[in-house]
């Protein structure tokens, strides 16, 4: 190993040691009989999960809200991302285009740098409590992610088909519809489905800041120490995430095969 590699290794080890020292982790408490007993008591309080018809019907409504938030948030993001990806992928050949491209990319960076939970807290203030704030929060963050992915996809497209249409006198809109979009559609759909998977997981926790859905229900019951109800909410989250993951995986495989 070179002296540079040794230095990097020592720096990483120092960072790990400093992290443990700063966090003041009490490892000994893990193995203590008292702690284990409390953990067992806490876990057993979740069983059996609440399954009364009234509760399950409320759970179904909240699950529907979560599903709707993630779906609508992703759809809004897809449309806005495509619109922003066009200037963000423009060839920087002219000064005006380069400025527009850089400004759009900066905007996309800013949108995705702010996590969904922070967006939700902001939208709850602006739009009030409930799933509308959650939907906007998911859309705002996802535009940042999808916009960048869409722009990179458009940028890496082989230019020949678009060139052929442009040379034949096609308008920019016709070039986009006939040459660009059909070439990238499968890839864009695949990215969008993947983000839908992510958004269903994010939507499940956004309720913690009052943005509706299963997250809000979980926060409510945990606050009241109603563990059996909380367990049902967690199970509903697992089921919905697993179902969307499976559906999205299947669709993406079909699109890219």
């Amino acid at each position: 190993m070179t002296s540079r590699s040794w230095l990097i290794l020592i720096a990483i080890l120092a960072l790990i040691v400093a992290s443990f020292a700063t966090l003041d982790l009490q490892w000994s408490a893990f193995g203590e009989p008292d702690a284990l007993a409390r953990m067992l008591e806490f876990t057993s309080a979740f069983f059996p999960p609440e399954s009364s018809p009234q509760f399950l019907s409320r759970l179904a409504i909240a699950a529907g809200e979560t599903l709707a938030m993630s779906t609508l948030g992703t759809l809004i993001a897809m449309v806005l991302s495509l619109l922003l990806a066009l200037p963000a992928s423009a060839p920087p050949s002219r000064v005006r285009m380069r400025l527009l491209r850089d400004a759009t990319r900066l905007c996309l960076n800013a949108l995705r740098s702010i996590p969904e939970l922070v967006w939700a807290a902001l939208w709850v203030i602006a739009a009030g409590l409930g799933p509308f704030a959650g939907t906007l929060a998911l859309a705002a963050h996802t535009v940042g992610v999808l916009g960048r992915l869409f722009a990179d996809t458009l940028e890496n497209l082989p230019p020949a088909p678009s060139r052929a249409l442009r040379d034949n006198g096609a308008s920019p809109a016709a070039v986009f519809l006939y040459a660009t979009l059909p070439q990238v559609l499968a890839q864009l759909m695949s990215y969008s489905l993947y983000r839908w998977e992510n958004n269903i997981r994010a939507a499940a926790i956004l309720g913690v800041v009052g943005a509706g859905g299963l997250g809000q229900m979980l926060y409510y019951h945990l606050s009241l120490f109603q563990m059996q109800e909380s367990a049902s909410v967690v199970l509903a989250m697992l089921a919905i995430v697993a179902a969307v993951d499976a559906l999205s995986n299947l669709s993406r495989r079909k699109l890219t095969s």
């Binding site: 020949a160 006198g169 059909p182």
Partner: peptide, 29 residues
């Protein structure tokens, strides 16, 4: 662009066909 649409035809070295369209659709463009 209107002039190119109406009065010009292009043939390129690398063909520049649109890969997801059939030969007939490429010609119909």
């Amino acid at each position: 662009a209107a002039l190119r649409r109406r009065a010009l035809g292009f043939v390129f070295q690398a063909f520049h066909l649109i890969p997801h369209m059939s030969a007939a659709r490429n010609v119909a463009i």
